[in-house]
Simulated assay, not measured.
Amino acid sequence: MRMSHLLTCLTRRWPLLLAAMLALSATACSQQQGRDMARQFSEGKPDEFFQTSVDRMATLGMRDNLQSLYLLMNKLYLRNPSQWRQSGYPDAVTAARTIRQAIENRQPLPALGERRDLAALSYSLSPEFRGDRVGAFIYAIGSMLVTAHGGRTRFYVTDSINPQFVSNAARNIEKATWLLGQRQDANGVLLLFSNEISEEGSNLSFAVEFGKIVARLDLLTQILDERYRRIGLNYAQSLLLMNFLPVQ
């Protein structure tokens, strides 16, 4: 009898109990979300408030592409130790640091004169070039990447990136990767050693890392195309539906 009475009470009060449990669950979730948001804000940088999601993605993509490029530079110096010795610096680390600073600060490279971007890329892979070919090659690609992104490495709401230039940079890197494995001197020796396929083993890490850069650039191109396409579609829809455009 007591059990029956208890079940009856629980049945009648179940909606109230369920509501209380949901309220407690919602409160716990809200608190957790609040803590997550607070943690994300604390880990973020102030300038991120002036970036859209696309701006942030472009900034991170540029950061990762430059890091891939610097990794390739170190690997090329290991495969071609004679190159950094022609740079005039005491070691490969100093040479790499100098190239990196020149790329990020948009400074000219003495060995290339005033050449940048495509002109520097063509010259760095020509038999006529004399000097640190690894540094010149990496600098040329790095300067091309920065130029294709409007001369910036960080992006904010006031900036714009031309998706066609980003796509062109990706295609140029594909061509440069192929040329890297094909260009030879007058004696038939490769100008720079990179990928290797031989009886002793294979080393395709250069192609893989270049492929990562190309993939990031192509992804950014697609997102930028969609972003601007949606702006155009939203405007067309507003005209079709005779809606006034928001002003704030």
Rank of each mutant, 00 (worst) to 15 (best):
D36C: 14
D36T: 10
Q40T: 09
S42N: 15
G44W: 10
P46R: 06
D47F: 11
F49A: 14
F50D: 10
F50P: 13
T52I: 08
T52E: 07
V54P: 02
M57F: 10
M57Q: 13
A58C: 08
A58G: 10
T59H: 01
G61N: 07
G61Q: 00
M62T: 07
R63S: 04
R63G: 05
D64I: 08
D64A: 06
N65L: 06
L66M: 08
L69N: 06
L69H: 03
Y70A: 02
L71K: 09
N74C: 06
N74V: 02
R79M: 14
N80K: 09
S82E: 10
S82Y: 11
Q83M: 07
W84R: 09
W84F: 13
R85T: 08
Q86S: 13
S87W: 09
Y89E: 15
P90F: 01
D91P: 09
D91L: 09
A92F: 06
A92H: 07
T98D: 14
R100M: 14
R100N: 15
R100Y: 13
E104P: 13
N105D: 13
R106L: 11
Q107W: 13
L112V: 00
R115L: 06
R115W: 03
R116Y: 11
D117S: 05
A119V: 09
S122W: 13
S122Q: 14
S122F: 10
Y123D: 03
R130L: 07
D132C: 00
V134Q: 00
V134T: 02
V134F: 04
G135H: 01
A136G: 08
I138Q: 00
A140F: 04
A140G: 05
I141T: 00
I141N: 05
I141M: 05
G142T: 07
M144Q: 11
M144K: 11
V146H: 10
T147K: 14
T147R: 13
H149A: 11
G150C: 03
G151E: 02
R152C: 04
R154Q: 13
F155G: 03
Y156P: 09
